[in-house]
Amino acid sequence: MKHSIKIRINGQWYLGDVETGMTLLQFIRDEAGLTGTKAGCENGECGACTVLMDGKPVRSCIILAVEADGSEILTVEGLREGDKLHPLQQSFIETGAAQCGFCTPGMLIAGKALLDKNSNPSKEEIMEALGGHLCRCTGYKSISKSVEIAIDKIK
């Protein structure tokens, strides 16, 4: 059975007639064509597909597109303002926190979710926010450091 839904992604409405089983991740990648959000496990285990849904970080691979009907989504493509990179994007580049780049979109969104609700998080709070996001390249230190640097950039 198909459902007519609309989801606002990065400020733009996307309409779709979707099967019940389609995930939000599939909608973002296949319907909206925004492939920055990555599918690492499609089981909610790695965090690569994290997006903001109405301001909250969610794993888009375990949410159905129909559940997201009418919601506001932010993906990695929506982080920058015009040509200006978000402070997190800048700090990730400065520290080399994006190596293969596959976990990066999810990490950036998790960082953004944290900084949106807490402009001055402690090291522990950063670790908590990034917990459950898997990265096989970096050893995480450059990623948590990027979030710390972004705090100062935002101030």
């Binding site: 925004l34 993906t75 990695v76 493509e77 580049i93 080399g96 780049g101 596959f102």
Partner: peptide, 17 residues
Amino acid sequence: TRNDGVEKTTGSAKYVA
């Protein structure tokens, strides 16, 4: 800094899938 940093932090870096 890495020359692929912008691509990989803005979602524009392309992978096979």
